[in-house]
Design a binder for these strands. Structure first.
Lengths: 219, 219
DNA sequence: TAGATTGTTAATCGATTAACAATC
DNA sequence: TAGATTGTTAATCGATTAACAATC
């Protein structure tokens, strides 16, 4: 890492995308790529690509470009994907179950260790080999198993209470699927997946596209 | 609507959030709110709130503030939430099923009409009263039922092919859960939910927070 | 009318793009 | 060495914040 200045979130949000494209290139057996070639592939300007990467260090080589495998590994390390994360899911409803079943996360170093719910009918159930446990026991479990991430798949009404408990028990990050903005201690990272917000902005863009089409048709 | 200039996506992304907070205020029986009060609640500056809202028209009143219910309705209309949208889900795996079961969307005017899959073992199944149909028949279905939105819950390898078919059949928007960037005609809106990207940026922030904590401890 | 608060213009800040010297 | 392409500084663009006149 090169500079110590805070890196903007806009840059961070682009890193997983860089990484995805680099993975594809690797699969295709591509060894090296210039910022220009990468630009026409990924759709960011070459300038932005170089600027982004230089926030973390000089990964390229003048006159050559970037080594695909090397850059992939660097970005993985920057994101912290060379580590393993232990996670618990709170809420064994549809979404919680879907995430528990999504074995991708396991492969990628994100291990779902347990699922918690208050519903007695769900407690004891096994989802993808992971037991649904009683929410009452979550603090002990998180402490004893050194859980890193809590995944909140509850309703919005219980989400803050769950977040408080998880933070108290020692998680370092929350992946929040409840449609609410959580308050957490500053050392806990929160990443929101607000599905309804996402759907609403889709609706907006659909209607704008429609309006434009209408307007174009008038001419 | 006041101006005709293109409104930046940053503004649009904030609208669903304004709307959520306004809904809560309404529930609490709050009639009016000033940009300053709203600011301390939602965390945007009062200036930004006024600036954002004025992209669409003057919804406030000098010396008074904004009418909560009125503003809620205005934002709903801007987003297009006064309309109904017919949707199909492609991919009846965990995620597809979770979304189909999430009746929230139905209540909010987003109606899941059908689910499609290529797996013969899933075809015929009923999920939340919605039948899983053969993917082969999707183009006819979308055309005949005038489906507005396609929800892509397939693997990344089939996602583009599915997108092509849905666009050809006439959807106006795609809600894409596959970890890939889709190419679509310009009049089709795409909203991505890249869950793994989201998890990766969570990992980044967790590690940065940890580093800062370490650094603080050194002092 | 006086006070409050918006709507809107101007100033600032930050992020993106362009340019080019450094260097492989 | 000559050509290519990065790393980095400077210029531009856009988004956020501040200020204040308009007005309820």
């Amino acid at each position: 890492m090169k500079k110590d200045a805070k890196i903007s979130n806009a840059v961070i949000k682009r890193l997983p995308r860089y990484r995805r494209y680099l993975k594809e290139l690797q699969k295709k057996g591509v060894d090296k790529i210039s910022s220009n070639e990468f630009s026409s592939l990924i759709g960011y300007t070459a300038s932005q690509i170089r600027q982004d990467l230089n926030n973390f260090g000089g990964f390229g080589q003048q006159g050559y470009g970037y080594n695909v495998e090397g850059l992939y590994n660097e970005i993985s390390a920057i994101l912290g994907l060379d580590k393993e994360y232990k996670m618990v899911i709170v809420g064994a409803g549809n979404l919680g179950q879907a995430i528990a079943n999504h074995t991708y996360y396991y492969k990628a170093g994100f291990v779902v260790c347990g699922i918690f719910d208050i519903n007695p009918r769900l407690i004891g159930l096994k989802i993808n080999d992971i037991e649904v446990m009683d929410y009452e026991t979550i603090v002990d479990y998180v402490e004893q198993n050194q859980i890193d991430i809590g995944i909140i798949c509850t309703t919005k009404d219980s989400a803050q209470e769950v977040a408080d408990k998880l933070c108290f028990a020692g998680v370092r990050g929350l992946w929040n699927f409840a449609p609410i903005d959580l308050e957490v201690p500053e050392y806990v990272a929160v990443e929101n997946v607000h599905l309804s917000d996402s759907l609403h902005s889709l609706a907006y863009h659909m209607n704008r596209n429609y309006e434009e089409k209408e307007k174009a048709a008038e001419k």
